[in-house]
Write a protein that binds this DNA or RNA. Structure first.
Lengths: 332, 332
DNA sequence: TTGAAAGCGCTAACAA
DNA sequence: TTGTTAGCGCTTTCAA
């Protein structure tokens, strides 16, 4: 049993290896007759080109490194898998290999192993990012907008999203709007709060300080915050919660205390986590295009490479109205 | 600026490329003096071996393909990311590259691109599996025990887990135990039901047919099933639900109907999804070693290769007692 | 439109 | 313990 390599194909097709290579790579300067012969030989021998050899000879890896920071939160969140899915499907479509690297912030794929690198979030990987930029590896950062660094970014427009939520609640007649934040060490947590505060300020309805409660995306923090909010003498009529999971907990706490949702309390979440659509009170929330973020990240990397100026994409969100919010004037 | 390859290192170190190669690959037949020189040269030049060249020359890819079937369910589940994490961390430790491939069941990495392949679940990828086995690529299937095929498997012992749950509930004094199943098209769904039924039968307490309600891992199905169960004249005192998410919904429905949990109804879930620990009623559930499953899968692939007979691993689960179950005799 | 031949960067006999 | 040398399988100039 002989090895099936490009030479074997060339021999059975009666052409040179160069011609076979041309057919494989879709280079047009091959006569139809020869192309047919080669194609048949390939099929007959069940030939598959050896990727390592292709890469070595061409200098192109056709591979993108996908780096996931190894902090626990990311493995419990809804979003990481959605982003991976987006990147993965785009990669399959582009016939590009994905090198998955779950990192502790120290290791990453060798530059010569990839044409580019995608960071899914950057938390704990700042050094790695500096390295790749220094080495000139084309790089995209997802879900974290880095204004200062010369790197492609695709992120969610959390501020505008928060603004939309505020406007939505104001339009429903709410005067007393509170928020339960996410982890302010994360950009999403911070931006959602900033957007909330700024929106209220811009609309001459500055947020009361006691209406801002700090959570960390964890359920216990949501519980505590909600309890504090509901125990207030002049408690809010609406709460903007920084994640759907937390918002679910807010609803649970409210209902347990006999506070009806949405009749007495409106709640808005963030994520459009499918679990939120089916809970006791279908949650009004903000949908983020997570899979799109992944897809765009890959496409950006493939198109731009390192040539162009860093592209910064801020993806729009969409408010999904379900049944956890209510107009205040209905009950007046 | 010259290219930094193994020859450049050899030159600055004053040795042959072979010696450099030996140092890189940790082959011991190198004098300490030379080793030092080489190491210094590597550091000085910031040299990184070219993986494609290494692979081509050695015939070993040092790469494992990780195949994820592209059906929606898998991206909404808690488990996929945990398994990926397990595989990923083990791969980082073994200094082995992971080729992530999200597939529609048609495409997969070329055999020559990987030393082996791991399927995370097999749903929709049966053909691909046949191909890899036929081509003699070392293969591991995770989360699906395939008794007949000569392939390494690492899965969860769902039957025994269900049995444990039954024994636990029986010990608490429950006579009327119901179950809400997962999607019976999945192996986990099916095995959890089988284990449940068999356990009751073995203990001479055969399950009543009306106490078996069919869900599909989706929240609406859990809601419907729970409502039906609670509406029964002689409703069960305990329900074993095939996933934590569904179990949460069961609790929600029960509480909404004024059925207290655990006082009037005990509920056991499956997964140990972190969200279940923090809900309104901390959920008693079954913990599956998902990350371990991933890790073991990779280690198995690396150790065994295709040489040995197929290894079939069934990982044990652990019952995590929280507060959603209660002894019946307390309230009597 | 075709093919000969020179690498791509590395590993592994083999000989010294 | 070291180095020489012949590939690994492919791409790509260059000349025909």
């Amino acid at each position: 049993m002989k090895k099936i390599n490009i030479e074997a194909v060339a021999k059975t097709a009666g052409v040179s290896t160069t011609t076979v290579s041309r057919v494989i790579n879709g280079i047009s300067t091959v006569s139809d007759a020869n192309r047919q012969m080669v194609l048949e030989a390939i099929k007959k021998l069940k030939y598959h080109p050896n990727p390592s050899a292709q890469r070595l000879a061409s200098g192109k890896t056709n591979t993108v490194g996908l780096i996931i920071p190894r902090f626990e939160g990311i493995f419990h969140s809804y979003y990481a898998l959605q982003v991976i899915k987006g990147v993965g499907i785009a990669a399959e479509r582009a016939r590009c290999d994905l090198l998955l690297h779950i990192t502790d912030g120290k290791t990453r794929p060798a530059s010569s192993a990839v044409d580019g690198i995608i960071f899914v979030d950057i938390y704990g990987c700042e050094e790695l990012l500096d390295q790749t930029l220094e080495e000139g590896v084309p790089t995209v950062v997802l879900n974290h907008y880095m204004a200062d660094l010369p790197v492609h970014c695709v992120a969610i427009d959390n501020r505008t999203a928060a603004e939309k939520v505020v406007d939505f609640l104001l339009k429903l007649g709410h005067q007393d709007i509170a928020t339960i934040t996410g982890d302010l060490k994360t950009q999403s947590g911070l931006d959602r709060l900033d957007g909330f505060v700024k929106a209220l300020k811009d609309r001459a309805r500055p947020a009361r300080e006691e209406y801002i409660r700090f959570g960390d995306f964890g359920l216990p923090s949501a519980r505590t915050a909600t309890e504090a909010l509901l125990a207030m003498k002049d408690r809010p009529t609406a709460i903007f919660v920084a994640s759907d999971e937390m918002a679910q907990e807010t609803i649970n706490v409210a209902l347990a205390k006999g506070v009806r949702v949405p009749e007495e309390l409106s709640v808005v979440g963030f994520d459009d986590n499918p679990i939120a659509a089916h809970g006791r009170v279908p949650l009004t929330t903000v949908r983020q295009p997570l899979a799109d973020m992944g897809r765009l990240g890959l496409e950006l990397l493939l198109q731009k490479g390192k040539k162009s100026a860093p592209t910064k994409l801020l993806l729009p969100t969409e408010l999904v109205e379900r049944q956890s919010c209510r107009q205040t004037w209905i009950e007046r």
